[in-house]
Nucleic acid binder design. Structure first.
Length: 471
RNA sequence: GGCCCCAUAGUCUAGUGGUUAGGACUCCGCUCUUUCAAGGCGGCAGCACGGGUUCGAGUCCCGUUGGGGCCA
């Protein structure tokens, strides 16, 4: 075991960040933090065709969203830079050259068509389709011929043809590979770029050349979709921004992902970031893939929302509300305090920030729908318009707008009419919020301006009185 | 197709030879409340299969099946 743990996360900048990649990054980060080592970010963009600066930004954002920081990386630098592979091509080229010189690699002039054809033949014969190594033994004259024909070679590694290579993996155990089964892998493309595999190996092994111990691998199990196949785009939301946009709190996602493939060894489920770091270990990581269960992820998110102070929750809600046009761009301190009160009142219910906003819409606008249950069960009842009218008249004259005074009026009205309080409460809730569910009615009324409530009561009174007249 | 890894309820998992197999999500009841989408209480449901080893196997070994990964 090396004295200093160094873990590396090496994503390709593909323009979006998969939640499975984030899971991998999290575990590597946890391991580094647990043992006070370094977490290194390296961008693997040797696939020249597809890297853009924005795509690298997506990776940064995904990691930052979850609260993962890196000790070395393209933007922060570090002693073993550069940390973007495309900036290291000269380095890889020099290693390719070295291998060629030593006869450990050779130039291969086979065309993709020829290779395909031969693979097909081998398959037809029931043989494993692997490169037959024919270019290994090309003579100088043959090479010259190909060259003059203008055909650029790729470079292959002359792999051992017998024996077994054993890779030690901290999670998967000893993983032996039969050398005979593997063809000579391409390590340099015809374009002169190194292949992904070669670059990775050079980068990892370079640490050894620089006096670090041989890198040790730990292959984490993958995340699967609900149908148990590898999580991919067709499973719907898989990119990190999708979860952020859905309204997941990063701390909840952190907790949830940590528990996917790792267990603290107890029955605790809600664990803080610090607890997770201090209790993390590779031994406690499972080695079988696990399914991403959205229902449980939402449950965990709701747990975090419930325990979060309203003030803090309000800050998370604010940008989403503004985006929906439900909140002003430059709110006053007073308005933020009010939002915190709304958050406290509603946070028991919603599983996500977005559902919170949907469910709490009536706090921010008069523009909400009456849902089916509110209409059928209360609003269209014959007595309702009169009840709403009477309630509005009583509430209108209140000089002190608090849940207590409101409750007193509501109950007094019910008593006057000789009905249970529910006969006033339910129509009122339906009229003022458009729905039959929600928090304590008197507390929610208290948080809305008196005139807003009066207006909404009258509006519903008129609308449903007319409704019946039209029938 | 070859090689490797894995296998506890629908899902995430605890469990390292002797447990009534524990927890959580989901689902379903009941209950409280002015409502539930919240709270409280309860329930359904699991060691993939077949052989061994052992006094005794979820736990160890072999095979089968299934899933996943890597290679091509």
């Amino acid at each position: 075991m090396p004295d200093t743990i160094r873990t590396r996360f090496a994503p390709s900048p593909t323009g979006y960040m998969h939640i499975g990649n984030l899971h991998t990054a999290l575990f590597e980060w946890l391991y580094a933090r647990r043992y006070e080592g370094q977490f290194v970010l390296r961008i693997e963009d040797t696939d020249e065709a597809r890297h853009t600066p924005e795509a690298v930004g997506v990776i940064y954002e995904g990691l930052r969203w979850l609260g993962i920081d890196w000790d070395e990386g393209p933007d922060v630098g570090g002693p073993y830079g550069p940390y973007v592979q495309s900036e290291r091509v000269e380095l890889y080229r020099s290693y390719l050259g070295k291998l060629l010189e030593q006869g450990l690699a050779y130039e291969c002039y086979c065309t993709p068509e020829e290779l395909d054809q031969r693979r097909e033949m081998m398959r037809a014969q029931g043989l494993p389709p692997r490169y037959d190594g024919r270019c290994r033994t090309l003579t100088a004259t043959q090479k010259a011929e190909y060259c003059s024909a203008g055909q650029p070679p790729c470079i292959r590694f002359a792999a051992a043809e017998t024996g077994t290579t054993v890779v030690h993996d901290l999670i998967q155990g000893e993983v032996p590979f039969e050398n005979a089964l593997m063809g000579d892998p391409v390590i340099g493309k015809t374009s002169g770029f190194p292949t992904y595999h070669f670059a990775v190996v050079v980068d990892d092994q370079l640490q050894e050349a620089l006096g670090f111990p041989t890198p040790v691998y730990a292959h984490l199990p993958l995340i699967l979709g609900e149908d148990k196949s590898k999580l991919s785009k067709r499973h719907g939301a898989v990119s990190v921004v999708d979860y952020a946009e859905k309204g997941f709190l990063p701390e909840a996602m952190f907790n949830f992902l940590a528990l996917l493939g790792w267990s603290p060894g107890s029955t605790e489920e809600i664990l803080s970031r610090e607890e997770i770091i201090s209790r993390f270990s590779l031994e406690a990581c499972g080695s079988s893939p696990s399914v991403f269960d959205m229902a449980k992820a939402e449950w965990m998110n709701s747990e975090y929302m419930k325990t979060m102070p309203g003030e803090q929750l309000a800050r998370r809600l604010l940008p989403l509300l503004q985006k929906e046009g439900l909140f002003e761009e430059n709110p006053t301190e007073e308005r933020l305090t009010w939002l915190a009160q709304v958050a406290d009142l509603m946070k028991e219910r919603a599983p996500l920030l977005t559902t919170f906003i949907t469910w709490a819409r009536y706090f921010f606008t008069d523009d909400y729908e009456y849902d089916e249950k509110a209409r059928n069960k209360w609003l269209t009842k014959p007595a309702t318009p009169a009840t709403l009218h009477a309630l509005a008249e009583r509430l209108q004259v209140l000089t002190d707008w608090t849940s207590d005074t409101i409750e007193a009026e509501v109950r007094a009205l019910a008593e006057d009419r000789g009905v249970g309080a529910g006969k006033v409460i339910h129509p009122c809730r339906s009229a003022v919020t458009g729905t039959t569910v929600g928090p304590s009615l008197f507390h929610l009324l208290e948080l809305l301006p008196q005139e807003t409530i009066i207006r909404r009561l009258h509006r519903a009174e008129v609308e449903f009185a007319e409704d019946r007249a039209a029938d």
